[in-house]
Every structure is written in C-alpha cells, then in structure tokens.
Simulated scan of single mutants.
Amino acid sequence: MSPSHRPDTMPPSRPPPGEEELRRLVAHLRHELRTSLTAVIGYSEDLLETLEGPEALRTELEALRGAGAAVLALVNERLGAEALRALSTSTLPRLVRALGDACAEPASAIAPLCVRLVAAAEGAGQYALIPTLCRIQAAGVMLNDLLAGYALELLPHAPPLGGMPKAADPTNEARLAEAPSAERGHILLVDDNSVTRDVLRQWLVRQGHDVEEASGGDAALELLRARAFDLVLLDLVMPDRSGIEVLDVLRAEDLLGRAPIIVLSALDEFDGVVSALERGADDYVTKPFHRVLLRARIRMALELRRHRERERAYQGMLAELRHAR
C-alpha cells in the first residue's frame, strides 16, 4: 500500500474558504433549513385539514404550524438573496449567529409542542395523528441541530471531514461525550476507502456512538443479516458490491427498513443518490463531509428509527382497536 493510501495519512490542509464557497455553503444551509421547515409546516397543515377532535388539539397544532412559519420567515429574511450578496468572510459569523439567536424561541418550541400533542392525541383516542406528529418532531430535531451546529462550529473555522481535523475544544468534546444515550447509536459504517472509514470512525466515536465497520458491500450484508443496527452509513461506489446493490439485496431479503440508511456520495454521483433514495435509502450526504450537517443528519436518522418503532406500535394499537370493533 502506498504511503498516500495509509489509514493514518491525513490529506493536506485546505486554505480558508473564499467568499464564493461561503455563499454556496450558506445557500446549502438555507436549503436544509427549508427542507426541515417544509415537514413541520406541511404536516401540521395536513393534520389541521383533517382533524376531527378536541379544540385543544387544533389550538396546539396551529401553534406548531405558527412556530414553523416564524422560523421560515426569519430564514427567508436573514438568508435571502440580499443577505447573500452582502456576505463576506467577516460578516458570515455574525449572520449565522444572529439567525440562530432570532430563531431560538420558535424553533425550540416545536419539540415540546409535539410532546404535548402526542399526549393530547393519546388522551383523546386520536392515535392516527401520532405517526405524523413523530415525523414533525424528527424534523424539529434536525432544524435545531442545524441552527445550533452552524452557530457553534462556525464555517470558516470548521473544515469538512476529510480535511485536517480542527483542534479539539475540550468544552465541546466534553459536552458531546455527555450527550444523552438516546442521542447515541450503534452505527454500521460501510466504505471501501480506509482513510474515509478511519476519519469517520474517530469522529463518530467522539460523538459517543458505537461504530462497526465494513470494507465493502458483501461484508456489510453479512453484518446486517447477523445483528441489528440503529443506523447505516453506506458508500455508493465500492468494488465488490455497490451501495445500490446492497439496497437491492436488503429489499429482496426483507431487511430494508430495520435501520435508517444514509448514503455517502461524491458531488458528481447525483444519479446514484437518486437511485439509492428510490430503492429505500433515507437520506444522503456528500463528500467531503461537513461536521455540522452530518451530525444533524445522523441525529435525525436516529430520531427517525425511534419514531418508526413508535409508529409500528401505534399501528398495531390501531389494528387491535379496529379488530375489537
């Protein structure tokens, strides 16, 4: 193996991002925030249109939709075209932090509202509402993680994974190590590139996750058949069996859906990403990875797995109620 491919060899340091790169990054942040808000607002409106229940439920749902709409208005204002035109390496930190501060109150209201709504739905016997409320809560988690993450690990000082690692912040590392166990997971990392696996594994372990590795598609399938995982990070391009082929086998063996799957792709592999999503992958991230976005995606995927388990339980409860009638 050549020195440039040894797992302990790190890529060269990247220069600080230029203003054009910053604009693209902020545009990407705006897209991700809007995606989460589409779920919060859209699902809330769907529930309001079909709700047949106590007025208290409607009031809470309207508050939930209002919280999402308030954050969306701030995102559109603070990250709109005019703001991007005025963006520079010196103004970006203030812009992102100001957005996080402005959105803090309405964004932090989403999860408690969902918790209250789930309890109210259970009390009113409106069990059919609960799976959708779980999806809204997962989107709210993603939203808060993006806002907090980009503010805490500001972009010009946080190179993507795959670049030279940032000097550890003892306070931040301690905070991550003390993260609630519900935010940690048993993760399968599938990638034929040993450098990528090594960088990602070390970072994931620092977040408190338990990580197993597979160097290819066949090894990944053996592990997935043998035991359960909370999340799979699956590379698209591998020499023995591609990520697409892994998804096809999982579907054929009725193993798809046990754990959320996040596809790892290069920027020029968009067609492969689309095929993976069509075959049952839950999300994707592009290489080189940005820590804030990857952490938010992983957190949302772990939330999704827990909500799927709750959803299955509620669907079973509904089936029993229909049978009893």
Rank of each mutant, 00 (worst) to 15 (best):
P3H: 06
S4Y: 09
R6M: 11
R6C: 01
P7I: 07
M10H: 11
P11D: 11
R14P: 02
P16S: 12
G18L: 08
E19R: 13
R23D: 00
R24V: 09
L25K: 13
A27C: 11
R30H: 14
T35Y: 03
E45P: 00
L48T: 00
T50W: 01
E55T: 13
E55W: 01
L57V: 05
G66A: 14
V71K: 04
V75F: 09
V75A: 13
A81S: 12
A81W: 04
S88L: 01
S88E: 10
S90V: 13
S90M: 04
T91L: 07
T91E: 09
T91D: 04
G100L: 08
D101A: 15
E105C: 01
E105Q: 09
E105T: 13
S108A: 13
S108D: 12
I110C: 05
I110H: 06
A111V: 14
A111P: 05
A111L: 12
A119V: 05
E122F: 11
G123P: 03
A128S: 14
L129N: 10
I130W: 01
T132D: 10
T132S: 10
I136P: 03
Q137Y: 14
G140A: 04
M142G: 00
M142C: 05
L143D: 02
L143Q: 03
L143G: 05
N144Y: 01
L146M: 03
L147T: 07
L147A: 07
G149Q: 04
Y150C: 05
E153Y: 12
L154S: 11
A158Q: 15
G162V: 04
M164W: 06
M164N: 00
P165C: 07
P165Q: 08
A168N: 01
A168S: 08
P170N: 02
A174H: 08
A174C: 02
R175F: 11
L176K: 14
L176E: 10
A177E: 11
P180I: 02
A182F: 07
D192Y: 12
V195Y: 03
T196A: 14
D198I: 00
D198E: 12
V199W: 02
H209K: 05
D210H: 15
E213A: 07
A214T: 06
S215P: 00
G217S: 04
L221K: 06
L221P: 02
L223F: 06
L223Q: 14
L224F: 10
L224Q: 06
A226P: 02
A226S: 15
A226E: 15
A226R: 15
R227G: 12
A228C: 03
A228L: 05
L236G: 04
M238R: 09
P239M: 09
G243V: 10
I244D: 01
V246W: 04
D248C: 07
V249P: 00
A252G: 06
L255H: 06
L256V: 12
G257Q: 12
G257S: 07
P260K: 09
I261F: 09
I262N: 00
A266Q: 09
D268V: 01
G272R: 09
V273W: 04
R279L: 15
A281L: 08
Y284N: 03
T286A: 15
H290D: 11
V292N: 11
V292P: 00
L293D: 02
R295M: 09
I298W: 04
L302R: 03
R306W: 01
H307W: 02
R308I: 00
R308Y: 03
A313N: 01
Q315V: 15
